[in-house]
């Protein structure tokens, strides 16, 4: 069983536990917690519900992964839920466009914790073949945190399954005590990007405003950004 490895000394998670100031030293590597982790992770990783959420061509391979030949259900990832409220895993399967990003972020925010994101295919990972397009976001990780990246265009269903196995391994390394969703405050809600003259990452709004002011004053700086309203 892989769970025995969860808190091996030297492994990253173990260090994190040691450095956690709120865990008294005598509780470190407590047998109870380790077992709890094992059970906790075993349960979680074997009953993931992915969100039925397709963006582009990769979504077809994702559906094929869920179909008879590759049968995602063998991993206990039984149901694809179209509603984010019932899903643990978002598979970003396809080209992320600027027009779609606000919706994706909103869906992500609506997913209950713990939530994971797999970026499937070249497009979701880094823009893919359409990277240079004016309406394409170069990778969903610009907006939401991604756990597993799978390159390929499209990845074979096996590649996606391999990514899932990797995700299970990742889940296995987590510990009840360090996961962010039991901390006060939980994880952050990501502000939904705005659609203006171009996509506006709200987190960077003030930076954009400032730079734009400078640029408007000195046209030389605006070189390469001079795309006025036509």
């Amino acid at each position: 069983m892989a769970d025995t490895e969860t808190t091996q000394p030297g492994d990253g998670t173990g260090d994190a536990i040691q450095n956690d100031p709120r865990v008294p030293p005598e509780l470190d590597r407590n047998v109870f917690i380790t077992t709890l982790d094992a059970v906790y992770n075993w349960g979680r990783k074997r009953s993931m519900w992915p969100m039925l959420f397709g963006l582009a061509c990769c979504a077809i391979e994702m559906i094929c992964t869920a179909a008879a030949r590759f049968d995602l259900a063998r991993f206990g990832w039984e149901l694809m839920r179209p509603s984010p409220r019932q899903a643990d895993l978002m598979i970003v399967s396809g080209t992320v466009t600027k027009k779609m990003v606000p919706q994706i972020v909103r869906l992500y925010n609506q997913m209950p914790e713990p939530r994971y994101v797999v970026s499937m295919g070249a497009c979701a990972t880094g823009g893919g073949p359409f990277k240079e397009g004016y309406n394409v976001v170069s990778g969903i990780d610009k907006f939401i945190p991604v756990d597993i990246y799978i390159p390929g265009c499209p990845p074979r269903p096996e590649s996606l399954l391999h990514g899932f196995i990797k995700l299970q391994e990742m889940i296995d390394r987590q510990s009840v005590r360090t996961v962010p969703w039991y901390r006060p405050g939980g994880s952050d809600v990501i502000p939904v990007p705005l659609l203006g003259p171009d996509i506006i990452d709200v987190r960077r709004a003030s930076e954009i405003a400032e730079r734009n002011k400078v640029m408007a004053e000195s046209p030389a700086l605006a070189e390469g950004n001079a795309q006025g309203q036509a």
């Binding site: 003259p197 506006i200 709004a205 954009i208 730079r211």
Partner: peptide
């Protein structure tokens, strides 16, 4: 990377003087 070539470090461009904090458009 393409991101390293462009002023915003991302696939975006704004008209000069554009201020997103004051933008209230609704598509």
């Amino acid at each position: 990377l393409a991101e390293e070539r462009v002023p915003w470090g991302d696939n975006v461009q704004y008209p000069p003087g554009f201020d997103p904090t004051a933008y209230h458009g609704n598509p």
